[in-house]
Design a binder for these strands. Structure first.
Lengths: 334, 334
DNA sequence: GCCGGTCGTCGAAGCGCTTCGACAGTCTCA
DNA sequence: TGAGACTGTCGAAGCGCTTCGACGACCGGC
């Protein structure tokens, strides 16, 4: 079972066939008789053979590893990122690939390094900014890549994301259906907008357009993440616009603070103020009261990103943009 | 710059030396004259050479990749996990290694696969349980490994972690110094204790022993993570023991709910109830009021785990257990 | 009964790198 | 001044795998 590492030659000898036959059994690239295949597979499992990844990558020019590039920046909600990451790993395994984790601190050079050294076959990038330093590099790389999120110039790239504009609009429509006329959006911290992170802006645009389309009175504000700042923002908001009755919150870290602040200000949810959040389901469900929300379909996005990158690896054409439609889950807060 | 992949042979030709000379320049395993070294390095950078990872791993029996095994389980605080993960990646890069991300859903078999296929040289495992299914496997593996956390039987393994018992004790000592006599620990959700996760139990033990040592009246309770459950727990606690004046919270997700609940129950922090948390610094700083806390030194733990695993790779002896001492940061909540 | 095709298998040529032994050329010291 | 020890470099032998071309064996069709 254990001990020295088993090679394909030992498997071949044990099964009484040629090395190449074992290889073809494993890859399925040539027809092998059922009998031979069985003998080979038996030998593989009795010897506990695992192909040497390096040798395989050298000979086949495929490492069966994809890179997951995950910058960790201020204001990003880490659990959501993590769910993307695990979804990518799980999906990649389904295609018989492993995942190499790259962070930002090496800079774009790290991406070039793993690509040029054939450590990875393809790349999935998360948390893409509008003017992302990594994007120009991707264009000159031979390895296929997929972005989770949209940069300012997505032409020629493959991008996947939740349709945040539609999500923002969906929240507005829901509040409008419930009869709310004056509403507000509490978004990401200022720094996130300033950085030009796409999803924050797109939600705001969707919100603003939908507000106009429904003839509502709507205001979009950034929102910091400490309780005190949230409290200040909300109490000012309620003072300035006493008739405000609906809130869209697109900031996972602030969601609970928003509810706490409303509680402290004596506003009941949903009787006085209805709240819709754009956040992961577990955050929405754990809140008090549970929040009506559009979830960020992290698993779905991660899976889709991997599916696309695998298609590109096979040389197939894929759409430039994939926008996943938002789903609204109605709970107690509206 | 770009285009077809550059090989060591092309570098050698360009620099007018033998392939092996280039290799020795890169590895430093034989002395090379300053002049030759410079010529070779020049050629490398003008040609944009990056060694082929697969070829290197095949020839040298080292992939320069370590696995980070990161099960994602209920009740774990994801941002903390993520900080471990990025610390591991950063530290690994410093040793010229990359990090392969493994999740739990493949089970222990995934560990065996990446080890047996020589995809990775070594393993770092996070979020270790007392009776972890992965541990027996590690013992039979040829590849060195380091655990972040402690299983029930750590003999023969290398483990690193914050000294949670000391952290629990430190919090108790701090409250005792401030004159509090009746205190309580709000810990992890029940499921985490049931699973036998080491750090939760060790904190509780440290708390309990310190309570006895200081002659205090102390109670340790598990703590769920929804606002309503936290509220229930706390209001019952305050009803049962009206003289309670100090709280240790070891549950990142519940920290803000605890403060919210105290606020709602009309207890001021720190005047009526002092609160010490064991949680990341950013959570403590963002709370209202900012919390006196023992932080989880994720970066330090991750870095130490990598350092240890690299030492083991070099065949050096390392200590079985590394416990990092807790540091208490005093803020407004006590 | 022979020819062209398929099927199943084999042997060998690399893939790009590391490392070992060899070997000129230099230096050191008796 | 020559033996011995270094230094700096080279050539070649693999590392374990994939893949290409080759080649019997067998098939059906005429």
């Amino acid at each position: 079972m254990s001990g020295r590492t088993v090679t394909i030659a030992e498997v071949a000898r044990h099964a009484g066939v040629a090395v190449s036959t074992v290889s073809y059994v494993l890859s399925g690239k040539r027809t092998i008789s059922a009998d031979t295949r069985r003998r080979v597979l038996d030998s593989i499992s009795t010897l506990g053979y695992h192909p040497h990844a390096g040798a395989r990558s050298l000979a086949s020019k495929r490492s069966n590893v994809i890179a997951l590039v995950l910058p960790l920046r201020a204001g990003m909600h880490v659990p959501v990122l993590m769910r993307f990451a695990t979804a990518v790993v799980t999906a990649a395994r389904r295609f018989d690939h492993d995942v190499l984790l790259l962070t930002a601190d090496e800079g774009p050079e790290g991406i070039r390094r793993v690509a040029a050294s054939a450590l990875v076959d393809a790349l999935v990038l998360m948390d893409v900014e509008l003017h992302d330093r990594r994007v120009p590099l991707l264009r000159e790389l031979a390895e296929p890549s997929v972005l989770i999120g949209f940069p300012a110039e997505p032409a020629g790239l493959t991008c996947v994301d939740l349709d945040f504009a539609a999500a923002g609009a969906r929240c507005v429509a829901h509040l409008a259906e419930r009869g709310h006329r004056r509403i507000a959006l509490l978004g990401a911290p200022v720094v996130v907008y300033d950085r030009g992170t796409g999803f924050a802006r797109r939600t705001r645009e969707g919100f603003t357009e939908a507000v106009a389309a429904h003839g509502l009175d709507g205001l979009a504000l950034p929102c910091e993440e400490t309780f005190d700042e949230v409290h200040t923002t909300i109490s000012r908001l309620l003072t300035d616009r006493p008739a405000l009755s609906g809130l869209v919150v697109h900031n996972e870290s602030a969601v609970n603070h928003v509810l706490g602040a409303l509680r402290q200000l004596g506003r009941r949810v949903p009787e006085d103020v209805a709240v819709v959040a754009i956040c992961p389901d577990d955050v929405a469900e754990r809140a008090s009261p549970p929040l009506t929300s559009v979830l960020i379909p992290a698993e779905e996005v991660g899976r889709e990103a991997v599916r696309l990158v695998m298609q590109k690896l096979e040389g197939r054409e894929v759409p430039d943009a994939t926008l996943l439609p938002p789903h609204l889950a109605i709970r107690a807060s509206t």
